[in-house]
Write a protein that binds this DNA or RNA. Structure first.
Lengths: 368, 368
DNA sequence: TCTGGCACTCGGTAGACTTGAGTGCCAGGC
DNA sequence: GCCTGGCACTCAAGTCTACCGAGTGCCAGA
């Protein structure tokens, strides 16, 4: 008695998922667009006067009833306008919104940024979050490439104080890691250097998660330092293991939501880097670029939408850029911004990593 | 007609600043304590029933009139209770609050933390912000030691790709900095190593802000790499120059203030690391441990109080820990927490830096 | 000099009323 | 058979009023 009773609904129930009839789609689009702009429930007369909708408000009303029944819209209360549900936003994003291009001003802003930025990758990623959050006025997140597959290019031991040394390891992707080594006895610089050389000789080319078991050098002092260094590196647990994450413009969150409670809980999430990383990864892995409301199955972010774009170098996804905003976010602009910035970041990382056939680096290859 | 008219006010106008008469101080204390707890304006009858105040509410009222006239209290509106002004809080902090000790639970929490934490300084400082913000439920800030006076202990050039190398510099305080070097032509590993040795030989012992002018090695290729490295390091502008800052528990801000606008603006401040660093430094330099409201002369934080404690190693202030909360913060707990954590951080940094007479490090000395 | 008492103030709450945006439904027209 | 204008209805939000109560300032008396 439900679906077949309404002649306007296609008989094929699956068709609803693919495409609403044109008029309903236009009405949904009008509601979403209006609501994104005003944050106020949208009434039928507003919709009727929208370009793209050529029917009277009465007709709009009856269509809106159908849209509500199908879960695209809800009414906060009777005698109020409608607001989109997550499903409504999803349809809007999937079918009603163009891929979107940046406005000339934004385009210029991006170009300027990539002209000026230079130096270390970390710095660049960090600043990119600022750029993204300024472009969109949402909070931006950038996840840098993980160092899992990078190999060790160099190891060195530097003395700091009589019984304190530093193990410095350079990875093939340009990352540097270090570990303090506390020594039981004073050790000469020469021994430290030799220990470094010993480590270097045996560790170069391995991944940073490899075992640090290094054969004896024949000198007891040197071996002790080597062992201490291995131990120090063994309990890494930080820096290299977790992907780096940069957050830009957290203050924007307070603009996006007017409930303090929401701000608090979303900020709380952002503090948990691991959660954020896996969230972005998860969304990307599911082939999405937007996760709306509870689509990511993550309760505390139910009132948020997450826009994600990959940072790929030579077709390989090395990182991700993301935007965090309210579900009534400007998806078009957010998608365009994330996409462009992600792409250009990827290009940039590619350029500096490439420069010809790699001499022993594992993760880059020279094509393109 | 103002001051002499009230017989309860000391004739000596300066005396007011030093110490309110006992009764007024007790009343002020009661108001502040109550207000910190409830965030509601405090009426005379509440004060009258507080321990430490032995007079009737009528008397309290007349004293409160005086306290208001002298700027310690304000009335949000007639027929409301009083709330403390910044000056009121200041008097409370300076004269009415005990230095304060941590409760046993907190003490245990701190001990546990310092038992468990280990590894690199950055990691430790980072985690310390989490500890502080959990202890106090306010947002915590930790500023690490600056590298200004640290000297270079080692320089090394590592090849990453045919035309890409990395300059890695180790400072005497254990910090590591790096710069990507893009080379005009392919260079053999041997040349890179020799360039590193050349840099090492001439830069060790200098501060990282020194000029990177290094004499010619006699080999053109090597010199070119050395020059490129010097240039790369010249435009440092990041990492080493700005002190590192770690923020813990920004989400707590949203609990401290119920006006979203305030949260937004304070978060905005926290994004500007330089501002935060100079704010903390400034407060410390003025010999304060608390800056209330506008005392720091910083408009956007007018509704905040900042509690600061130094992190000293061997009597030298190397860093600072801070807490950011509403002016109606629990000063006693905040002061105690910041103090203890700052102190123990200092001890910890001292231990790992010391280990005997330094062999060439500039900033540490061996006395206890 | 303190205290109890008293009149007064005024923010906040609760209820009654109004307004207006918006709906659902229906009869009539193309 | 679908669309439209019209109409009665609903309900959140705003306005007005009255009232309550916490709190004050002031004063006379102990």
């Amino acid at each position: 008695m439900t679906a077949p009773a309404d002649p306007a609904v296609p008989i094929d129930a699956d068709a609803e998922e693919r495409a609403l009839n044109d008029r309903r789609a236009a009405i949904l689009e009008a509601v979403v667009t209006e609501y994104i702009g005003t944050a106020e429930p949208v009434g039928s007369s507003h919709v009727a006067s929208a370009p793209g909708v050529q029917v009277s408000s009465a007709t709009v009303r009856s269509e809106m009833v159908a849209l509500e029944r199908d879960g695209y819209l809800v009414q906060p209360h009777t005698s109020a306008g409608r607001i989109p549900t997550d499903k409504g936003y999803r349809f809007f994003v999937d079918h009603l919104t163009e891929p979107g291009v940046l406005g000339p001003t934004q385009h210029q802003q991006v170009s300027l940024f990539f002209d000026q930025v230079h130096g270390e990758m970390e710095t660049m990623l960090e600043r990119a979050t600022g750029l993204l959050s300024e472009l969109t006025s949402y909070t931006a997140v950038v996840v840098g490439p993980s160092h899992d597959s990078a190999t060790i290019r160099s190891a060195q031991v530097v003395g700091l104080a009589p019984r304190l040394a530093l193990l410095v390891v350079v990875l093939s992707d340009g990352a540097v890691d270090k570990r303090t080594i506390e020594l039981e006895a004073e050790v000469s610089d020469d021994v430290l250097t030799r220990a470094g050389a010993q480590l270097h000789a045996h560790m170069v080319g391995k991944t940073s998660s490899s075992s640090w078991a290094v054969p004896s050098s024949g000198n007891n002092d040197v071996d002790r330092v080597v062992a201490a260094a291995g131990t120090a590196f063994g309990l890494m647990e930080h820096s290299m293991e977790s992907d780096q994450i940069f957050v830009g413009g957290p203050a924007r969150l307070a603009q996006s939501f007017d409930a303090v409670e929401t701000v608090r809980s979303v900020l709380g999430i952002l503090e948990q880097q691991l959660v954020v990383v896996s969230l972005l990864r998860d969304v990307l892995n599911r082939g999405l670029s937007v996760a709306i409301g509870t689509e990511h199955g993550f309760e505390p972010l139910a009132s948020c939408a997450v826009v994600v774009a990959p940072v790929s170098v030579d077709g390989q996804e090395l990182g991700a850029v993301g935007l965090l905003g309210p579900t009534r976010m400007d998806y078009q602009r957010a998608l365009a911004s994330a996409h462009v910035v992600g792409e250009r970041l990827g290009q940039r990382l590619g350029e500096s990593g490439r420069s010809g056939a790699p001499a022993g680096t594992g993760s880059h290859d020279g094509r393109n």
